[in-house]
C-alpha cells in the first residue's frame, strides 16, 4: 500500500484528529464553546485510511461526526477551530459550526446535520463526474444509523442503476445515538444490503487502517473504472458520547474499555514500530507535536474577532 513516509503521515493525521476532538470535548466541558459537536474519537482509522486512497479531484461527503473526515481530507485545523468557536475566519464564517464544515472548492462537500443528508448529494457529485467524463470518484461517509433512512435506499439504488462513481462508506460505530445497531437492524452486516441493490458489499475492521484503506482503494478503482458503486462497511466504535449531552446510559464502561483496547491509533503505531518506521520516543514526539498544533489552532481562533452581527443576514442567496 502507501509508501513509508506516507504511513507516518497517516499516523500523524489520526493523532491530529483525536487531539482536535479531545480538545473540543475539553472546551465544551469548560463551557468555552457555544453549541454542540459530535466526536470522532475511536474512529480515526476509517476516515484517514479511506481518504488516503483518494486521488486528486475526488470528493467526499461527510456527516454530523465529521471532524476526522475534514482533517483526513486536508482541511486546515486553524480554520476548523475558528469555525467551532464561531469566528469569521472559520470555514463557514461562523454560520455553520461543527456540523457544516465544508470546503466545496477543495472537494469536501460538507459535513451534514441530517442523518443520511449527504447521500443524495454524493450521488449528484458522482453524476457530475460521469456526465463530464471525468474519472473521479466520490467517497460518501455515513453512519449505520443512516442505513435505516429512506434516502439510503434511494441513493444506493440510483447509484447502482446509473453506475455512479460513488463509494458508500458506512461507519458502523454500533450506536445511532443510544440505539444499538443490533436492535435497529435485523441483518448481521449493513453491507449485506448491497445485494439488494446489485452492488458489492464489503465489511472490514475499522480499527485496522490498512484494511479500510485497501478496501476503499479497490472500491474507488471500481468506481473510477465505470463499474459502479460499492457499499463498504467499517466496524468501528465511538469512545465518547453521541454529543456533549450524552451520559452513556445505554452502554457499559466495560464495553467502552474493551473497544479502547483495540484502539486504531495504538494498533497502527505498533504496526509502524514493527515495520521499523517508528521508534517509541518518536511516538511521544508525534503526540506532543499534535497537541501543540491543536493548542495553537484554538489559541489563534480564540483571538479572532467575532463576525459582525449583521453578517447573519448575508449569504442566504447567491
Amino acid at each position: 500500500m502507501q509508501d513509508n513516509g506516507n504511513r507516518v503521515e497517516l499516523l500523524k493525521k489520526m493523532l491530529l484528529s483525536r487531539t482536535f476532538d479531545e480538545k473540543v470535548n475539553d472546551l465544551y466541558a469548560e463551557g468555552k464553546v457555544h453549541g454542540t459537536a459530535h466526536f470522532y474519537v475511536g474512529q480515526e482509522s476509517v476516515a484517514i485510511g479511506a481518504i488516503a486512497a483518494l486521488r486528486e479531484g475526488d470528493v467526499i461527503t461527510s456527516t454530523h461526526r465529521g471532524h476526522g473526515h475534514a482533517i483526513a481530507f486536508g482541511l486546515d485545523v486553524d480554520r476548523m477551530a475558528a469555525e467551532l468557536l464561531g469566528q469569521a475566519t472559520g470555514y463557514c464564517h461562523g454560520k455553520g459550526g461543527s456540523m457544516h464544515i465544508a470546503d466545496v472548492r477543495a472537494g469536501m462537500l460538507g459535513a451534514n446535520g441530517i442523518v443520511g443528508g449527504s447521500m443524495g448529494i454524493a450521488c449528484g457529485a458522482g453524476w457530475a463526474f460521469k456526465h463530464r467524463g471525468q474519472d473521479h470518484a466520490v467517497l460518501c461517509f455515513f453512519g449505520e444509523g443512516a442505513a435505516n433512512e429512506g434516502i439510503f435506499h434511494e441513493s444506493l439504488n440510483l447509484a447502482a442503476i446509473w453506475k455512479l462513481p460513488v463509494v458508500f462508506l458506512c461507519e458502523n460505530n454500533q450506536y445511532g445515538m443510544s440505539m444499538s445497531v443490533k436492535k435497529a437492524t435485523a441483518v448481521e452486516n449493513i453491507s449485506d444490503r448491497a445485494t439488494a441493490y446489485g452492488m458489492p458489499g464489503v465489511t472490514v475492521s475499522g480499527a485496522e487502517l490498512d484494511e479500510v484503506h485497501d478496501a476503499a482503494a479497490e472500491a474507488l478503482e471500481r468506481a473510477r473504472a465505470g463499474e459502479g458503486p460499492t457499499l463498504l462497511e467499517a466496524i468501528t466504535y465511538r469512545y465518547l458520547g453521541h454529543s456533549k449531552s450524552d451520559a452513556n446510559l445505554y452502554r457499559t464502561r466495560e464495553e467502552i474499555a474493551m473497544w479502547r483496547k483495540r484502539d486504531p491509533i495504538q494498533r497502527f503505531a505498533v504496526k509502524l514500530e514493527e515495520e521499523g518506521l517508528l521508534k517509541e520516543e518518536e511516538w511521544r514526539t508525534l503526540e506532543e507535536q499534535s497537541k501543540r498544533r491543536i493548542e495553537e489552532a484554538f489559541e489563534k481562533a480564540q483571538n479572532q474577532p467575532d463576525p459582525k452581527p449583521e453578517s447573519a443576514l448575508e449569504d442566504v442567496y447567491a
Partner: peptide
C-alpha cells in the same frame, strides 16, 4: 425510478458541483 428524495438529492449535489 419513483424516487423523489433520491433524484432531488442527486440534483442538489450535481448543482453544488456546478451543474
Amino acid at each position: 425510478p419513483i424516487s423523489e428524495a433520491g433524484y432531488v438529492g442527486l440534483c442538489t449535489g450535481a448543482a453544488l458541483m456546478g451543474m
